[in-house]
């Protein structure tokens, strides 16, 4: 991870009528960093991501990615997944990716590579309207990775994936950050997903960035809170959930 800031927002705000969806957000995400953006439903995660991608205009403040304001130039270096995974239902997985390839000027072989990387080979010629939600999510991730972007902006990337799929995507994102210096900005409301992957976590609530923590700080604070607040029964329940996940992954061939 380097000190170069890749995603930068200053006083980023979005207001819908009387609702302040995002309020004076200041973010600095560094190159090669996996940044987890945590928040409850309706906290402002998706609105922030839409502003990062230029899909909605901020009421005030600004966004810079790779040192540039959002526009076609910089969007070519960003891979993204916004909210729910969607695709053209009448087109096959390969055709959907071919559209992305043509419009991002990626190499023709990138379609096959993305299909293989996301384990979509058996579904390559299947219409996306017939895919399960998990495979549709894989297609959306394949589309995000297709043109080997420098920055990945992913809104709930684990949506619809089974536990083994979540681990697989987690490893893929980690390797992209570690081996290729890809910056990953991912939102989630699943704490475990972020805790396993993110180098740094930002917690958003009611549109405001409450806190930013690195992995160690997060672990320390979380353990202290659990020790103080959890009854022995609640703690045992939480541990059982974690053990169950590990057991399931082992039984189904995951890690």
């Amino acid at each position: 991870m380097s000190d170069v800031t890749v995603i930068e927002t200053r006083s980023l705000s979005k207001r819908y009528g009387h609702v302040q969806a995002v309020d004076s957000m200041n973010l600095d995400v560094r190159r090669g960093e996996v940044y987890g953006f945590l928040g409850r439903n309706g906290a402002g995660k998706t609105t922030t991501i839409r502003m990062l991608l230029g899909l909605i205009r901020p009421s005030s403040g600004c966004v810079r990615i790779l040192g540039q304001p959002i526009g076609p130039g910089v969007l070519g270096r960003i891979g993204y997944l916004v909210e729910s995974a969607t695709a053209y239902p009448n087109l096959t997985v390969r055709e959907n990716l071919d559209i992305q390839r043509r419009l991002t000027r990626a190499a023709p072989k990138s379609v096959t590579e993305a299909i293989e990387r996301l384990h979509l080979v058996p579904y390559a010629e299947v219409r996306s309207g017939r895919l399960s939600s998990g495979n549709l999510q894989r297609l959306a991730l394949a589309r995000a990775l297709l043109h080997s972007p420098d920055v990945l902006i992913l809104d709930e990337p684990a949506n619809g994936l089974d536990p083994a799929g979540i681990v697989e995507i987690r490893q893929l994102l980690r390797s992209l950050a570690d081996e290729h210096g890809t910056t990953v900005f991912m939102s989630s409301h699943i704490l475990g997903e972020v805790a396993h992957l993110a180098d740094r976590v930002g917690i958003i609530h009611d549109g405001r960035l409450l806190e930013e923590l690195d992995r160690e700080e997060l672990a320390t604070k979380a353990r202290a809170y659990v020790a103080e607040s959890f009854s022995p029964e609640a703690l045992a329940e939480a541990l059982l959930t974690a053990d169950l996940e590990r057991y399931f992954l082992w039984r189904t061939g995951g890690q």
Binding site: L53, P72, E83, T86, L103, T104
Partner: peptide, 14 residues
């Protein structure tokens, strides 16, 4: 209707 507008409009195309 298909929810693909958000994908299309974030592409590096004017």
């Amino acid at each position: 209707g298909h929810g693909t507008a958000k994908n299309m409009l974030a592409l590096p195309v004017p």
